[in-house]
């Protein structure tokens, strides 16, 4: 049984109705998408700003109700957006570690909340449980009586991870968990996450804009563009032999030591306007291989190679 199964999940944000006339069509932040995450797997999700990755993440943890589609966690359907019901199965680690902790509560109060509310533990049980969790994320227990502003980014992110673990979830959504941290500290957190995953048999969804980090921690990677999945594949193959031109563009744009500076795109191109989406493939306007069919028909996600899928009319060879 897969840890997470998402089918035809989508989100459309309504726009305000003008004083006269009909409401304009909503903004389609996430177009219907389906994917499966196996137990113990890390699924990387990459894409640029505005591609819908945060909207997707918020739907997966029940903070936002989907417009269409279903979410199944370990065979249990979770259709109504109720964070408390989701909380025991799936948890969230936020991008900004400091602002995800209430400045006016102690770390102990923050840690106790899920234990008390999700599991109804008494004082004694909570204390032992917090000690266990803090031990496994390498935090000292003396931190418990301090306030969030007293911690560095790396420590605060470990507290955020500890809070997520306290709910004993099966899945953790990591939303850019290291992008606010320095490189030397980044690896401390990533290695901790890797150890916790095997220790507690967790499943991760790892969202990031940093391709190298995603590749280093993920088993499979999903590439999002303009609210849709454009490619899914094994982490070690997807950036080395991309099938979708957008994946290749991403891989070539990442600055790499030892590669000369070339502009991968000649035109000053941007994402298409979400208020006025173009027909056909949303990448067609930036794609060097685009032809007539690309501007008319949105390509479906198709199997290309053993376990790689891409949504493209003219996939890349190799």
């Amino acid at each position: 049984m897969p840890a997470l199964q998402v089918s035809e999940l989508s989100k459309t944000f309504d726009r305000a109705r003008p004083l006269f006339g009909k409401a304009p069509p909503g903004v389609r932040a996430v177009r219907p998408m389906s994917f499966v995450v196996e137990e113990g797997e890390t699924l990387g999700i990459v894409g640029e700003s505005g591609c819908g990755k945060s909207t997707l993440a918020r739907m997966l943890v029940g903070l936002l109700s989907p417009t269409t589609g279903h979410i199944e966690i370990e065979g249990k359907a979770l259709d109504n957006a109720d964070p408390a019901a989701f909380g025991r199965l799936i948890q969230y680690v936020f991008q900004d570690p400091i602002s995800s902790l209430n400045p006016r509560r102690t770390i102990r109060a923050i840690m106790e909340t899920p234990l008390k509310l999700l599991y109804g533990m008494d004082r004694k049980q909570r204390e032992t449980r917090i000690a266990e969790i803090f031990d496994s994320v390498n935090l000292r227990e003396e931190f418990l009586d301090r306030y969030p502003h007293e911690f560095s980014g790396g420590q605060a992110q470990r507290i955020g991870i500890a809070r997520a673990l306290a709910a004993e979830p099966r899945i953790i959504v990591l939303d850019e968990p290291v992008s606010a941290l320095d490189v030397s500290v980044q690896a401390q957190v990533l290695n901790l996450l890797a150890r916790l995953r095997s220790e507690f048999n967790l499943t991760y969804l790892f969202i990031s804009h940093d391709l190298a980090v995603v590749e280093a921690v993920s088993d499979r990677v999903v590439v999002l563009y303009f609210g849709s999945v454009v490619e899914i594949g094994r982490a070690e193959r997807i950036f080395n032999s991309p099938k979708h031109p957008y994946t290749r563009l991403l891989a070539e744009s990442a600055p790499v030591v030892g590669r000369p500076l070339t502009e991968p795109e000649q035109k000053g191109t941007e994402l298409p306007d979400p208020l006025d989406p173009p027909p056909g493939c949303p990448f067609a306007g930036r794609c060097p291989k685009a032809t007539e069919i690309c501007r008319e028909q949105d390509p479906p996600l198709e199997r290309m190679g053993e376990d790689q899928f891409a949504a493209c009319h003219h996939p890349l060879e190799g």
Binding site: E215, A216, V217, D219, N240, A254
Partner: peptide, 21 residues
């Protein structure tokens, strides 16, 4: 610090960290 920076194309691996702050 150079060792801490993951490079694209290396596949799944353990990353280097500098202990402390």
């Amino acid at each position: 610090l150079i060792a801490c920076v993951p490079e694209l194309g290396g596949g799944r691996r353990k990353l280097e960290a500098i202990p402390g702050l």
